[in-house]
Simulated scan of single mutants.
Amino acid sequence: MSTLTTILTVMGIVALQYFMASRKHFLWGAIIPIAYVFTMIYLYLSNYYNSLLSFILFLSLGLIFLFEEWNRGRKDRRKKENNELNKMKKKDL
């Protein structure tokens, strides 16, 4: 895979992670990190990575990015819900 394709793929996955994390139920955001862990384990068992250290590094960095997007999506979801509640309260007054 070329570098540009790899970067675009990673950006697409991170964007999809944010979208899924900002849905109403928080578990939608868990799908991509779980799939990522299983994919990384498969790649390690098929000897894609030369050392355990590189496997752990890529696994942890990927999970950090995915969990950060999950956290950001949940925060934005809560902010939207609070804004809607405030609008409803203003109309009632």
Rank of each mutant, 00 (worst) to 15 (best):
V10N: 13
R74G: 01
L43M: 05
N86Q: 11
Y36R: 04
K79S: 10
M20I: 10
K80D: 07
N86W: 00
L93H: 02
L43Q: 03
R23P: 06
K91G: 00
L16Y: 01
S60N: 14
K91F: 03
N82W: 02
T3L: 14
M11H: 05
K89R: 08
N83S: 10
M11P: 02
Y48S: 02
K87G: 03
M1N: 07
T5R: 12
A21H: 04
T6K: 15
L4E: 07
Y18S: 14
T6F: 11
K90Q: 12
I7E: 03
R77M: 05
K79R: 11
R77A: 06
L45I: 03
R74C: 02
L66W: 05
L43R: 04
S22H: 02
N71E: 08
N47V: 03
L52M: 14
G62E: 06
L27R: 08
S60A: 15
D76W: 01
W70A: 09
Y48Q: 01
E68R: 15
L59V: 04
S51A: 13
K75A: 10
F67K: 13
L59Q: 08
I64T: 15
A21G: 09
S54M: 11
L66D: 07
T39V: 14
E81T: 05
E84Q: 12
V37L: 15
T9K: 12
S46N: 12
A30D: 04
L52R: 15
T3D: 10
N86S: 09
K80V: 00
L45E: 03
K79W: 02
K91N: 05
L66G: 04
G12E: 11
N47R: 07
L85I: 09
G29T: 03
F26A: 02
R23C: 09
K80N: 09
M20F: 10
A21E: 12
S2W: 09
F65E: 06
Y36F: 15
L52H: 13
K91Y: 03
L8D: 09
N82I: 01
L93C: 00
K90M: 11
T9H: 07
V10F: 13
Y48W: 04
S2A: 12
V10T: 14
